[in-house]
Computed example of a mutant assay.
Amino acid sequence: MSDAIDHPIAQPQENRFWLTTSDGVGIDAVLLRRAQPRTTAVVLANGFIGTYRSPHTRAIAEGLLSVGDVMTFDFRGHHGSGGRSTVGNAEIHDLEAVVSRLRELGYTHIAAVGFSMGAAVAIRHAAIYGGTSAVVSVSGPSRWHYQGTRAMRLLHIGIGKTFGRAFLKRFRKVRVTDQRWNPTPAEPREIAGEVAPAPLLVVHGDADAYFPVSHATAIYDAAREPKDLWIIPEMGHAERAVSSDLVARLREWLGERLPQRERPA
Protein backbone atom coordinates (compact mmCIF):
# COMPACT_ATOMS: atom_id res chain seq x y z
CA MET A 1 0.00 0.00 0.00
CA SER A 2 1.61 3.21 -1.15
CA ASP A 3 -0.34 5.62 1.01
CA ALA A 4 -0.50 5.71 4.80
CA ILE A 5 -4.05 5.47 6.12
CA ASP A 6 -5.01 8.19 8.56
CA HIS A 7 -7.05 7.11 11.58
CA PRO A 8 -7.50 9.85 14.18
CA ILE A 9 -8.21 7.52 17.10
CA ALA A 10 -6.26 6.12 20.01
CA GLN A 11 -4.27 2.91 19.61
CA PRO A 12 -6.87 0.11 19.58
CA GLN A 13 -7.02 -2.72 22.06
CA GLU A 14 -6.31 -6.12 20.56
CA ASN A 15 -7.94 -9.40 21.61
CA ARG A 16 -7.11 -12.74 20.00
CA PHE A 17 -9.71 -15.48 19.62
CA TRP A 18 -9.63 -19.14 18.62
CA LEU A 19 -12.96 -19.95 17.01
CA THR A 20 -14.42 -23.26 15.86
CA THR A 21 -16.58 -23.50 12.75
CA SER A 22 -19.72 -25.59 12.42
CA ASP A 23 -17.66 -28.21 10.56
CA GLY A 24 -14.98 -28.32 13.25
CA VAL A 25 -12.20 -26.13 11.82
CA GLY A 26 -10.21 -23.82 14.10
CA ILE A 27 -10.05 -20.16 13.05
CA ASP A 28 -7.42 -17.69 14.27
CA ALA A 29 -8.99 -14.25 14.72
CA VAL A 30 -8.14 -10.86 16.21
CA LEU A 31 -10.56 -8.17 17.38
CA LEU A 32 -9.44 -4.54 17.33
CA ARG A 33 -11.61 -2.41 19.54
CA ARG A 34 -11.91 0.78 21.46
CA ALA A 35 -11.97 0.80 25.23
CA GLN A 36 -15.70 1.58 25.35
CA PRO A 37 -17.77 -1.35 24.02
CA ARG A 38 -19.82 -0.56 20.92
CA THR A 39 -22.77 -2.17 19.17
CA THR A 40 -21.26 -2.06 15.67
CA ALA A 41 -18.51 -4.25 14.22
CA VAL A 42 -16.83 -4.72 10.84
CA VAL A 43 -15.36 -8.03 9.68
CA LEU A 44 -12.52 -8.07 7.15
CA ALA A 45 -12.37 -11.20 4.98
CA ASN A 46 -9.02 -11.50 3.20
CA GLY A 47 -8.37 -12.74 -0.28
CA PHE A 48 -6.67 -16.05 -1.02
CA ILE A 49 -3.21 -16.28 0.69
CA GLY A 50 -4.14 -13.16 2.68
CA THR A 51 -3.79 -12.91 6.45
CA TYR A 52 -4.75 -10.58 9.26
CA ARG A 53 -1.01 -10.27 9.91
CA SER A 54 -0.58 -8.35 6.66
CA PRO A 55 0.21 -4.64 7.12
CA HIS A 56 -2.30 -3.90 4.36
CA THR A 57 -5.13 -5.62 6.23
CA ARG A 58 -4.07 -4.04 9.51
CA ALA A 59 -4.05 -0.55 7.96
CA ILE A 60 -7.54 -1.05 6.51
CA ALA A 61 -8.78 -2.34 9.86
CA GLU A 62 -7.40 0.64 11.74
CA GLY A 63 -8.82 2.96 9.10
CA LEU A 64 -12.33 1.60 9.70
CA LEU A 65 -12.23 1.70 13.50
CA SER A 66 -14.23 4.91 13.62
CA VAL A 67 -17.15 2.93 12.14
CA GLY A 68 -17.02 0.10 14.68
CA ASP A 69 -14.74 -2.46 16.24
CA VAL A 70 -12.99 -4.57 13.61
CA MET A 71 -12.51 -8.35 13.56
CA THR A 72 -9.82 -9.75 11.27
CA PHE A 73 -9.11 -13.46 10.84
CA ASP A 74 -7.35 -16.08 8.76
CA PHE A 75 -9.48 -18.36 6.61
CA ARG A 76 -9.10 -22.12 7.00
CA GLY A 77 -5.81 -23.43 5.71
CA HIS A 78 -4.20 -20.01 6.06
CA HIS A 79 -1.35 -19.35 8.50
CA GLY A 80 -2.50 -20.05 12.08
CA SER A 81 -6.00 -21.36 11.28
CA GLY A 82 -6.68 -25.07 11.00
CA GLY A 83 -7.91 -27.19 8.13
CA ARG A 84 -7.30 -26.73 4.42
CA SER A 85 -8.43 -23.98 2.10
CA THR A 86 -11.26 -24.82 -0.27
CA VAL A 87 -10.69 -21.51 -2.10
CA GLY A 88 -14.09 -19.99 -1.37
CA ASN A 89 -16.53 -22.84 -0.76
CA ALA A 90 -16.47 -24.01 2.88
CA GLU A 91 -15.04 -20.64 3.91
CA ILE A 92 -18.57 -19.34 4.48
CA HIS A 93 -18.48 -21.40 7.71
CA ASP A 94 -15.35 -19.51 8.76
CA LEU A 95 -17.06 -16.16 8.30
CA GLU A 96 -20.15 -17.39 10.12
CA ALA A 97 -17.99 -18.46 13.09
CA VAL A 98 -16.58 -14.93 13.24
CA VAL A 99 -19.98 -13.25 12.92
CA SER A 100 -21.46 -15.58 15.55
CA ARG A 101 -18.71 -14.74 18.02
CA LEU A 102 -19.28 -11.04 17.48
CA ARG A 103 -22.97 -11.52 18.24
CA GLU A 104 -22.02 -13.39 21.42
CA LEU A 105 -19.85 -10.42 22.37
CA GLY A 106 -22.87 -8.11 22.10
CA TYR A 107 -22.52 -6.59 18.64
CA THR A 108 -25.91 -6.05 17.05
CA HIS A 109 -24.88 -4.52 13.70
CA ILE A 110 -22.15 -6.32 11.75
CA ALA A 111 -20.79 -5.48 8.30
CA ALA A 112 -18.65 -7.82 6.20
CA VAL A 113 -15.96 -6.37 3.94
CA GLY A 114 -14.43 -9.00 1.67
CA PHE A 115 -11.51 -8.90 -0.74
CA SER A 116 -11.19 -11.18 -3.80
CA MET A 117 -11.96 -14.70 -2.49
CA GLY A 118 -13.18 -13.07 0.72
CA ALA A 119 -15.57 -10.94 -1.34
CA ALA A 120 -17.16 -14.04 -2.84
CA VAL A 121 -17.39 -15.55 0.64
CA ALA A 122 -18.99 -12.39 2.06
CA ILE A 123 -21.66 -12.38 -0.65
CA ARG A 124 -22.41 -16.08 -0.30
CA HIS A 125 -22.45 -15.84 3.50
CA ALA A 126 -24.94 -12.95 3.48
CA ALA A 127 -27.15 -14.74 0.96
CA ILE A 128 -27.12 -18.10 2.78
CA TYR A 129 -26.76 -17.23 6.47
CA GLY A 130 -28.06 -13.65 6.56
CA GLY A 131 -27.59 -11.56 9.68
CA THR A 132 -25.13 -9.01 8.31
CA SER A 133 -26.15 -5.35 8.22
CA ALA A 134 -24.05 -4.46 5.15
CA VAL A 135 -21.73 -6.20 2.69
CA VAL A 136 -18.79 -4.80 0.72
CA SER A 137 -17.26 -6.80 -2.14
CA VAL A 138 -13.81 -5.57 -3.20
CA SER A 139 -12.13 -7.11 -6.28
CA GLY A 140 -14.47 -10.09 -6.15
CA PRO A 141 -15.07 -12.74 -8.83
CA SER A 142 -18.55 -13.08 -10.27
CA ARG A 143 -18.07 -16.70 -11.34
CA TRP A 144 -15.93 -19.71 -10.55
CA HIS A 145 -12.95 -21.16 -12.44
CA TYR A 146 -12.23 -17.95 -14.34
CA GLN A 147 -8.92 -18.17 -16.25
CA GLY A 148 -9.17 -15.20 -18.58
CA THR A 149 -6.10 -13.47 -17.16
CA ARG A 150 -2.51 -14.64 -16.73
CA ALA A 151 -2.73 -14.12 -12.98
CA MET A 152 -5.72 -16.43 -12.70
CA ARG A 153 -4.14 -19.07 -14.92
CA LEU A 154 -1.12 -19.12 -12.61
CA LEU A 155 -3.39 -19.29 -9.57
CA HIS A 156 -5.19 -22.32 -10.98
CA ILE A 157 -1.83 -24.06 -11.41
CA GLY A 158 -1.05 -23.23 -7.79
CA ILE A 159 -4.23 -24.74 -6.41
CA GLY A 160 -4.75 -27.50 -8.96
CA LYS A 161 -1.31 -29.13 -9.13
CA THR A 162 0.56 -31.03 -6.44
CA PHE A 163 3.72 -28.96 -6.87
CA GLY A 164 1.67 -25.76 -6.77
CA ARG A 165 0.03 -26.71 -3.48
CA ALA A 166 3.44 -27.66 -2.08
CA PHE A 167 4.79 -24.24 -3.04
CA LEU A 168 1.84 -22.48 -1.39
CA LYS A 169 2.30 -24.50 1.80
CA ARG A 170 6.03 -23.84 2.07
CA PHE A 171 6.28 -20.24 0.91
CA ARG A 172 2.83 -18.75 1.59
CA LYS A 173 1.77 -20.75 4.67
CA VAL A 174 -1.42 -21.77 2.87
CA ARG A 175 -2.61 -25.37 2.82
CA VAL A 176 -5.00 -26.12 -0.05
CA THR A 177 -7.25 -29.15 -0.33
CA ASP A 178 -6.77 -31.54 -3.23
CA GLN A 179 -10.51 -32.31 -3.27
CA ARG A 180 -12.78 -30.85 -5.93
CA TRP A 181 -16.01 -29.11 -5.00
CA ASN A 182 -18.94 -31.51 -4.80
CA PRO A 183 -21.43 -30.07 -5.25
CA THR A 184 -20.31 -26.79 -6.83
CA PRO A 185 -21.72 -23.86 -4.84
CA ALA A 186 -23.79 -21.10 -6.42
CA GLU A 187 -21.66 -18.42 -8.03
CA PRO A 188 -21.61 -14.89 -6.60
CA ARG A 189 -23.50 -13.57 -9.64
CA GLU A 190 -26.18 -16.23 -9.11
CA ILE A 191 -26.70 -15.47 -5.43
CA ALA A 192 -26.00 -11.73 -5.14
CA GLY A 193 -29.72 -10.95 -5.28
CA GLU A 194 -30.17 -12.74 -1.95
CA VAL A 195 -27.94 -10.28 -0.06
CA ALA A 196 -30.84 -7.80 0.12
CA PRO A 197 -32.28 -6.29 2.23
CA ALA A 198 -28.73 -5.69 3.47
CA PRO A 199 -27.04 -3.02 1.32
CA LEU A 200 -24.32 -4.29 -1.03
CA LEU A 201 -21.38 -2.21 -2.24
CA VAL A 202 -19.35 -3.61 -5.15
CA VAL A 203 -15.86 -2.10 -5.54
CA HIS A 204 -13.46 -2.93 -8.37
CA GLY A 205 -10.34 -1.45 -9.92
CA ASP A 206 -10.07 -0.92 -13.64
CA ALA A 207 -6.43 -2.09 -13.45
CA ASP A 208 -7.21 -5.39 -11.68
CA ALA A 209 -4.85 -8.05 -13.06
CA TYR A 210 -6.99 -10.95 -11.80
CA PHE A 211 -10.60 -10.12 -12.64
CA PRO A 212 -11.76 -7.54 -15.20
CA VAL A 213 -14.43 -4.97 -14.38
CA SER A 214 -17.06 -7.18 -16.01
CA HIS A 215 -17.02 -9.33 -12.87
CA ALA A 216 -18.07 -6.34 -10.76
CA THR A 217 -20.82 -5.30 -13.13
CA ALA A 218 -22.15 -8.87 -13.25
CA ILE A 219 -22.44 -8.95 -9.46
CA TYR A 220 -23.98 -5.49 -9.32
CA ASP A 221 -26.52 -6.26 -12.07
CA ALA A 222 -27.56 -9.46 -10.29
CA ALA A 223 -27.98 -7.74 -6.91
CA ARG A 224 -31.19 -6.10 -5.71
CA GLU A 225 -31.49 -2.70 -4.13
CA PRO A 226 -30.02 -1.26 -2.00
CA LYS A 227 -26.77 -1.53 -3.95
CA ASP A 228 -23.87 0.62 -5.13
CA LEU A 229 -21.06 0.14 -7.67
CA TRP A 230 -17.69 1.89 -7.56
CA ILE A 231 -15.21 1.40 -10.38
CA ILE A 232 -11.91 2.84 -9.15
CA PRO A 233 -9.51 4.24 -11.79
CA GLU A 234 -6.00 2.73 -11.77
CA MET A 235 -6.78 0.46 -8.81
CA GLY A 236 -5.26 -3.01 -8.84
CA HIS A 237 -6.39 -6.09 -6.93
CA ALA A 238 -7.70 -6.58 -3.39
CA GLU A 239 -6.10 -5.50 -0.09
CA ARG A 240 -2.76 -4.41 -1.52
CA ALA A 241 -4.48 -2.00 -3.89
CA VAL A 242 -6.64 -0.26 -1.28
CA SER A 243 -5.54 3.37 -0.87
CA SER A 244 -6.18 5.76 1.99
CA ASP A 245 -8.73 7.58 -0.17
CA LEU A 246 -10.66 4.37 -0.75
CA VAL A 247 -10.61 3.52 2.96
CA ALA A 248 -12.05 6.98 3.67
CA ARG A 249 -14.84 6.36 1.15
CA LEU A 250 -15.56 2.93 2.64
CA ARG A 251 -15.62 4.46 6.11
CA GLU A 252 -18.18 7.04 4.98
CA TRP A 253 -20.34 4.46 3.18
CA LEU A 254 -20.37 2.11 6.17
CA GLY A 255 -20.91 4.97 8.61
CA GLU A 256 -24.05 6.02 6.77
CA ARG A 257 -25.49 2.50 6.97
CA LEU A 258 -24.45 1.33 10.43
CA PRO A 259 -25.54 2.90 13.73
CA GLN A 260 -22.83 4.46 15.87
CA ARG A 261 -23.66 3.62 19.48
CA GLU A 262 -21.80 2.57 22.56
CA ARG A 263 -23.15 -0.20 24.75
CA PRO A 264 -24.06 0.74 28.30
CA ALA A 265 -21.30 -0.11 30.79
Score class of each variant (00 low, 15 high):
Leu154Gly: 14
Gly205Tyr: 02
Ser243Lys: 14
Ser116Gly: 04
Ser100Asp: 10
Pro188Thr: 07
Ala248Pro: 09
Pro188Ser: 03
Ser22Gln: 14
Arg16His: 10
Arg263Cys: 03
His78Thr: 01
Leu19Val: 02
Phe73Ala: 00
Phe75Thr: 01
His79Met: 10
Leu65Lys: 10
Ile92Arg: 00
Lys173Cys: 12
Leu105Met: 04
Pro12Glu: 06
Val247Thr: 12
Gly77Ile: 03
His215Cys: 02
Pro264Lys: 11
Trp253Gly: 00
Trp253Tyr: 07
Leu44Arg: 01
Ile110Lys: 03
Ala223Val: 11
Glu104Asp: 15
Gly164Ser: 06
Asp6Ser: 15
His204Leu: 12
Lys169Met: 11
Ala241Ser: 07
Tyr220Cys: 08
Gly63Ile: 06
Phe167Gly: 13
Ala59Asp: 01
Gln147Pro: 07
Val176Lys: 04
Pro199Leu: 01
Ile231Trp: 11
Thr86Ile: 04
Gly83Val: 00
Glu14Tyr: 10
Gln147Val: 12
His78Arg: 01
Val25Lys: 06
Asp245Trp: 13
Gly118Asn: 00
Met117Ser: 03
Pro185Asn: 08
Ile5Phe: 12
His109Trp: 12
Met71Tyr: 07
Val174Ala: 15
Ser22Ala: 14
Tyr146His: 05
His78Gln: 05
Ile157Gln: 14
Asp178Phe: 11
Ala111Ser: 09
Ile27Leu: 06
Arg180Glu: 13
Phe171Lys: 15
Met235Ile: 10
Ala223Leu: 09
Asp23Lys: 04
Gly160Arg: 00
Arg143His: 10
Leu250Lys: 06
Gly148Ser: 04
Asp228Glu: 14
Ile49Val: 11
Ile232Asn: 10
Ile27Ser: 01
Pro197Asn: 09
Ala29Pro: 00
Gly77Ala: 08
Ile157His: 13
Ala218Asp: 11
His56Ser: 15
Phe167Ile: 14
Leu19Ala: 00
Tyr107Cys: 13
Ile27Pro: 00
Arg143Lys: 09
Arg251Lys: 12
Ile231Gln: 12
Arg34Ala: 13
Lys173Gln: 15
Ala209Thr: 08
Asp178Thr: 10
Ala127Asn: 00
Gly47Ile: 03
Asn46Gly: 13
Ala126Pro: 01
Arg84Pro: 07
Leu64Ala: 06
Phe75Lys: 01
Leu201Arg: 08
Ile110Thr: 03
Arg172Glu: 15
Met152Asp: 01
Leu200Lys: 05
Gly82Lys: 04
Pro233Asp: 05
Glu187Gly: 05
Ser137Trp: 05
